[in-house]
């Protein structure tokens, strides 16, 4: 079942001399439970594409339809609310809230959703255990390694029970061991819980795990291969 449909998507930046088409007429569909890697050289438009897909940056034209909702037809407040309930984000630089512990970072998003204290507690515990951090619940980000922080970020992204997770170069700042651990976790979650992952990457190890590889260049999709 397709959960994301993208029609004729453009993102054009008007420079002083030259017009830059960061995303140039992209049409693509993502199915539920896919484990997709968006690959391509730097400047190919991967991050911009993910930002448009995640409702973070407004496209110049085109539609992003998630579960029959035109994301860019939503007003500011509704769009934020839509992200809260439908999309999980994992960023390259982890981007945890530094003053909150691992547990609080994961709980935070559920609190925004208005979930009960009991539910928050149980889900946070099980998610952090699932990413192998059951013993670091009360650690603040500065007491965690990069790999551990990124695993907390994955737990946070999952906490809201999103329809899909967008990860922008999630392993770019990790060593090989942490990358391996993180990928195993993401792959397990995808396989066992049917969670849809879409991530941009340069990393060959990530590409090797992906079951669908979309290659971008100059804002266009060059190839779309199901492995």
């Amino acid at each position: 079942m397709s959960i994301i449909k993208i029609n004729n998507l453009f993102k054009i930046y008007d420079g002083s001399q030259i017009e830059v088409k960061a995303v140039n007429g992209v049409d693509i569909t993502f199915e539920e439970g896919e484990f997709t890697a968006i690959v391509g050289p730097s400047g190919s438009g991967k991050t911009t594409f993910l930002n448009l897909l995640g409702g973070l940056d407004r496209p110049t034209s085109g539609d992003v339809i998630v579960d029959n909702v035109n994301v860019w037809g939503l007003s500011g407040r509704k769009l934020i609310d839509f992200r809260l309930h439908n999309i999980g984000f994992v960023f390259q630089a982890y981007n945890l809230i530094p003053v909150l512990t691992a547990k609080e970072n994961v709980e935070f998003i559920m609190e925004l959703q208005g979930r009960s204290k009991q539910e928050r507690f149980e889900r946070t515990k099980s998610l952090l255990e699932a990413v192998g951090l059951g013993d670091r619940l009360d650690s603040r980000p500065n007491k965690l390694s990069g790999g551990q922080q990124q695993r907390v970020a994955v737990a946070r992204a999952l906490a809201s029970k999103p329809k899909f997770i967008l990860a922008d170069e999630p392993t770019a700042n990790l060593d090989s061991r942490s990358t391996e651990t993180l990928l195993d976790i993401m792959e397990t979650l995808n396989r066992e819980e049917n969670i849809t992952f879409i991530f941009s990457t340069h990393d060959a190890r990530v590409m090797n795990k992906a079951r669908r590889i979309v290659t971008m260049e100059d804002g266009k999709i060059l190839s779309d291969v199901h492995v």
Binding site: R83, L84, L112, R156
Partner: peptide, 12 residues
């Protein structure tokens, strides 16, 4: 950036 993250993940 942190503020951006908070709004990105769903904080009004």
């Amino acid at each position: 950036r942190e503020m951006g993250v908070m709004v990105a993940i769903g904080m009004q």
